[in-house]
Amino acid sequence: MRAFDYIAPDSTESVVAALAAHSPNARLLGGGTDLIVDLKHTSNTPKVLVDVSQVEDFHGIEMTDRGLRIGSMVTHTEIMKSEIIQKELPAMVDAAHTVGAVQTRNLGTLGGNLVTCVPSMDSGPTLLALDALVTIAGPKGSRQITLEEFFVGPRKTCLEPDEVLVDIIIPKENVGKPTHFLKFGLRKGQALALVNAAASFHVGDGNIFSAPRIALGAVAPVVMRATKAEDFLAGKEITEANMAEAGEIAVTEIKPITDFRASKEYRRELVAVFTRRCLAGAYALHQSRA
């Protein structure tokens, strides 16, 4: 690696100050599983690396008034081991489990996975399906936006060079919402998703889909919601036929590409099946809890 300076601030304010002083020549270091690879094998070396992993505000998983708060520097392993997530949102455990391998999950963070913003990120779909919010700190203070607004394009978020992702919040009403995540890679370990998907809904009176959410990864420039399929489901009875129909509708909303991992036709097939299976999985979770 080429030479750079390293600083490790211990508060949000000092991170923001460091960015103000050094951007655009600074880059934020979280777990480093993407950044260090980048620094080794590409030529764009920053002057300063700002290690944000020692900021206390960026850690911790806890229930707050607004919902479940997950610090951006929480590792995938910590998510898998969190009792509250295991109990309330097992789909997040499943999603974290599919990231890389043990070593990558021990270093890699949820925030890092989101800011990298690759279309195949495994943390994205579940969080989108749970209407997650993100807190961003910058020179003008902190702001909160939806995760959907956060994703802008492949490897591009709405973060300004002098801003930093503080935490991810899952709104209170969605903590415990039946959710299911599925990923299809070419291997079980260490594989990028050909398609990943998550679905969530509450079971309304009369066994109907209430607040259905379907989120899909690796089939568009960013992780996306299949809103037409969601609209179709809203208020309808929970049946296998409706789940399958939603899968067919979701296929019409995606913009998959053909690359060396899979063809767009194959990705379409996967989306139809995965949407249906995610909905069925979420329903199964609801029933097992009842």
Binding site: G32, L49, T77, G100, T104
Partner: peptide, 27 residues
């Protein structure tokens, strides 16, 4: 592999396995 895929550089930091090729010494 120098990209964190092969695990030949695995060591334990605070009891957890990590790819030592992806971690700065200072971390």
């Amino acid at each position: 592999c120098d990209v964190g895929d092969c695990g030949a550089c695995t060591v334990l930091v605070a009891g957890k396995s990590v790819n030592a090729c992806l971690m700065l010494a200072v971390q």
